[in-house]
Design a protein around this nucleic acid. Structure first.
Length: 203
DNA sequence: GCTAATCTCATCAATCTCGGATTGATGAGCGCATTAGC
């Protein structure tokens, strides 16, 4: 889907999340998991993030590990970062896989059934719905009115302020933008409204 | 050039309140999304 490149859009520049570089060992784990189930549920992804994170720490020597993960809190934070990255990795791999593979007819029906079951399973395994407080919503709405396209740093700062993960802030902004655009399509702008009112008066 | 990160859009599903509205979560992208960092 093409992005909106209209000039009035305040697109952040150089504010992307830094690129994750997966190691060969991490990729092995991810590919194996993908082959098993390209649609992992929330719990599975969390487990996988911990596993990948552990793999990252396992290859460090003891001293480096001590420096990298000075506390359990830091270790969990690191796993959360992996969680976002591996979610993206699964999305991108599914997209690339669809481009490449033209499934063979005989396999298709049984695979479809498996896939359907996997999909149902992962739908049962959704992340629980986030309920924002009025204060959190106020902060989000204010931030949205200032900049509907915040970069990673802004999102992370806002997330810290309101006490939710950065990924939730990102989803909130995506949904907000989408509904904002939909609303604008439905409702004519002020100029159109005035013009229509004039036409109605003429009648 | 490869691929992680990001985008829009459509849809599902939880929640609030009683059938439908609101809104967070997720997946696709069909001439198989685009952008941008390494």
């Amino acid at each position: 889907m093409a992005q909106d490149n209209s000039p009035n859009k305040t697109t952040p520049v150089n504010h992307r999340r830094s690129r994750t570089k997966f190691t060969q060992d991490q990729l092995k784990i991810l590919i194996k998991a993908f082959d098993k189930n390209p649609y992992p549920g929330y719990a599975t992804k969390q487990k996988l993030a911990l596993e990948v994170n552990t793999e990252e720490s396992r290859i460090q020597n003891e001293v480096t590990r001590m420096l990298l993960f000075v506390s359990l809190h830091e270790y969990i934070l690191n796993s959360l970062i992996f969680f976002s990255s591996l979610k993206i990795w699964f999305q991108n791999r599914r997209a690339r896989h669809q481009k490449k593979s033209e499934p063979d007819e005989d396999l298709e029906s049984s695979q479809d059934q498996d896939h359907l079951e996997e999909e149902i399973q992962s739908r049962e395994d959704r992340r629980s719905r986030t309920n924002y407080t009025s204060l959190q919503l106020h902060a989000l709405i204010e931030a949205f009115s200032n900049n509907p396209y915040p970069g990673f740093d802004s999102r992370e700062q806002l997330a810290k302020e309101i006490g939710v993960p950065e990924s939730r802030v990102q989803i909130w902004f995506q949904n907000r933008r989408s509904r904002f655009h939909a609303q604008r399509k439905r409702e004519p702008d002020d100029g159109d409204l005035e013009q229509r009112q004039d036409q109605e008066q003429d009648l």
